[in-house]
Design a protein around this nucleic acid. Structure first.
Lengths: 198, 198
DNA sequence: CGTTGAACATAACAGCGTTATAGTTAATCA
DNA sequence: TGATTAACTATAACGCTGTTATGTTCAACG
């Protein structure tokens, strides 16, 4: 990798972690990276290119947390482990998370490459969440169940940043999310236990 | 209400519905309202004041949809009815929804008055969702259950705007959300059915 | 009638993403 | 070696943003 290119990415990532989208101006990045402003445009596709890199970086972190190879524990516990990792990433990389889910500046739209990364992560989520479903379950149904889990967890993360969040003890949030997922998983498990002939 | 003031609000609301946050510039509002840019600052607290009005407007719409007085149907159906209304508002007033949940421009933070409105809506949600809980359930527990419902529904709405949403039929989204909520409610109902001594 | 105060338009400020222009440096090639 | 080419650089500008200072107009009130 080009030296200037990696320095730009490093600077952008630092600024992003420190101050989120508002701190991520082209001039600030170039200043910290020690390059001129048009360096952002020669090495990347301007600000859109920088945001794309951070978007992908964010999804890579999510992916690595839910990419679990575990044969010792039950599917239920594997899913909960993945949710824990997801919540951890959402806490540690809040700016990335907000970027990924359109909660920052509205001017950004992910590129094709960035969307591929997003779909890869969702695909992995489908893999681990469908562990509790019968193997012969059709693909669309597996997707829908993964979506249920994701919506529930993402909902907690998103509401955590909301004004209403002051009503609930902030330390509890992740536990509440985990508990809600557990409730939901158990409901689905018992539903399928009924529908599976024995 | 002052005439200029209402014209400004009208113009802002129109622009917001048409083009969301990016279209909502102080100059564009003043131009459409037929006032000077400084009028936005004399009648409101600048852009923050405008966004506050739209924030409150959005929560009012949510509130009116979940403010259900219904003694004919079961608590379960009342909740699902509220969720349907919530999803309708999220569709019809997408820009408001994104503003409310921090998914637009990151510079905005709701004022005290706006937060009061948000809490009022959440309070109403607690009211109708706790209909399925035993009356003697403690307040914190009712809040936590309302949060579960809200997180689940909001998760679906938020993910609907996401890049990953192309993988799922967009027409199905609201039905998927409703179905997920129904699953979750039933799980909680059966849990409490077990814990209630008879 | 004179004064006061509110709303007004104009213009400016600093910042934003982006780009045109021009200067500098380094590597490549005849 | 000397000339050309490509990639870097800085400077400045364009049009946009939110915000504010400066005058100006105009209607209401004592």
């Amino acid at each position: 990798m080009n030296d200037a290119k990696s320095k730009i990415l490093q600077a952008a990532s630092e600024l992003f972690l420190e101050g989120g989208t508002p701190a991520l101006s082209v001039r600030a990045i170039s200043k910290r990276a020690g390059v001129s402003t048009i360096g952002i445009y020669s090495h990347f596709n301007g600000k859109q290119g920088i945001l794309d890199e951070l978007y992908i970086e964010g999804f890579e972190k999510v992916f690595s947390e839910i990419d679990i190879i575990d044969t010792k524990h039950s599917p239920r516990e594997v899913i909960l482990q993945g949710v824990k990792g997801y919540l951890k990433v959402a806490d540690q990389y809040e700016a990335h998370y907000r970027l990924i889910f359109g909660e920052s500046d509205s001017g950004y739209a992910p590129s094709e490459e960035a969307r591929v990364m997003a779909e890869k992560a969702f695909s992995k989520l489908v893999d681990i969440s469908s562990l509790i479903l019968p193997v012969e379950t059709e693909a669309a149904k597996k997707q829908r169940f993964a979506l249920e889990i994701w919506a529930l967890v993402h909902g907690y993360v998103s509401l955590k940043h909301h004004a209403i969040a002051t009503l609930i003890n902030p330390l509890e949030w992740n536990e509440l999310a985990l508990s809600a997922v557990a409730t939901h998983i158990d409901a689905v498990i018992s539903k399928y236990a009924l529908s599976i002939p024995r």
